[in-house]
Design a protein around this nucleic acid. Structure first.
Lengths: 155, 155
DNA sequence: TATTGTTATACTCTATAACTATA
DNA sequence: TATAGTTATAGAGTATAACAATA
C-alpha cells in the first residue's frame, strides 16, 4: 500500500506515533541539542550555561531565584551554572545594595562575545538541519516554531 | 524598535540564539516530551518504553542488540526496558531456536493496544501544541518535521 | 520570621564494564 | 575465541532539603 510517511503499517492502520508532532519534536530536539552540545564543548559550555546567558541577554535578572523561575530550573542549579560562567568571566555577580541578600547577575562583554559565538554555531546547525527544506518550507517552519514557543511560554 | 520575533535586542543586533531552529527544537522538544511523559505515566510507561514499542511496531527486531542500535541506546538499557514491558505483558521474549543466545522481542496484542493509546495521547497533545497555527501552517510544520527527521536518520 | 543564596544529599537516567551462556 | 544478553557499577545532570546571611 502507498505510504507518504514512509511508515511501515498494515492496511487500514492510522498513521503511527512516530509521525506525530510531539514525537518528532522530542526526537529532533534531542538530536539538535546533542549536536549543539558537541559544538559548544570547545567553549567550555553546556546547553544550560548558554541558556542562562541567553536569558540574561533577553532581560536582566532581579535575582538568581527570579532567573531560575524564568529558566524553569532549581535555584541551586543557577548557582552552579553561574559559578562556572563567572569562572569564565562571562557573568558578574554584584550584590544588590538595596537588599544585600540578592546577587544581581550581569552578562559581561566576554559573556556577550561567548553568546554571540554560540548563536553563530546554532545558525550553522540550522543550515544543516534544514538543508532538505525549500526556502519556503524553512520560512514556514521558523514561523510555526515561533508561534508554538510563544504559546508554550518559551522565549 | 519594531521586533517581529518579540526578542529584546538593541538596535542593529542580529536575531538572537532563541530564534534559531536548533534552540526552538530543543526547548519545544523538552516541553513536548515532559507533557507526554506525564500522560503516559498512568500507563506505567516512560518515553523510552514507548520508543521501544514504536520501534518494534515499525519493524521486527532480529535481536535486542540490533534494536538497541536502531534506538541509539546501550544494549543494557534495552534489557531493563524490555524487562518492564514484559512485566506489563506488552512484549514477549522468545529464544531464537537457530541461535539460542538471541532473544527475539515481539509486540503482544497488549503491547499493540498500549502503543495505540500512547499514539492517541500524542495526537491530543499535537492539537494542543499546534492550536495557535492555521491548518496550512500545521500541514507545513508536519511536512518540514518529516523531512528533517528523515534526513537525520530518524523514523 | 521570611527570603536569598549556598551547600549537602539523593534520585533518575543511562552508559561502561564485568560476567554468563551459547556459539 | 567471539557474541548475545544480563548484572554490577559508575557518571552526568538536576532536584530537594538543610543551612547561613540578611531582611
Amino acid at each position: 500500500m502507498s505510504d507518504v510517511n514512509g511508515e511501515a503499517k498494515a492496511a487500514g492502520d492510522a498513521p503511527g506515533l512516530t509521525s506525530t508532532v510531539v514525537f518528532r519534536l522530542g526526537t529532533l530536539g534531542t538530536v539538535a541539542t546533542d549536536r549543539f552540545t558537541r559544538e559548544i564543548e570547545q567553549l567550555g559550555l553546556k546547553p544550560k550555561h548558554v541558556g542562562l546567558m541567553a536569558a540574561l541577554s533577553l532581560a536582566a535578572a532581579a535575582s538568581q531565584q527570579e532567573l531560575a523561575a524564568r529558566m524553569g530550573v532549581a535555584p541551586s542549579l543557577v548557582v552552579s551554572l553561574a559559578d562556572h560562567l563567572e569562572s569564565l568571566g562571562a557573568v558578574q555577580r554584584i550584590r544588590d545594595p538595596q537588599d544585600r541578600r540578592r546577587q544581581v547577575l550581569t552578562l559581561t562583554e566576554e559573556g556577550q562575545g561567548l553568546l554571540k559565538r554560540c548563536t553563530s554555531m546554532a545558525r550553522t546547525l540550522d543550515e544543516e538541519f534544514t538543508a532538505g527544506l525549500t526556502k519556503t518550507q524553512r520560512k514556514a517552519l521558523t514561523e510555526a516554531l515561533r508561534v508554538m514557543a510563544k504559546d508554550a511560554g518559551l522565549p
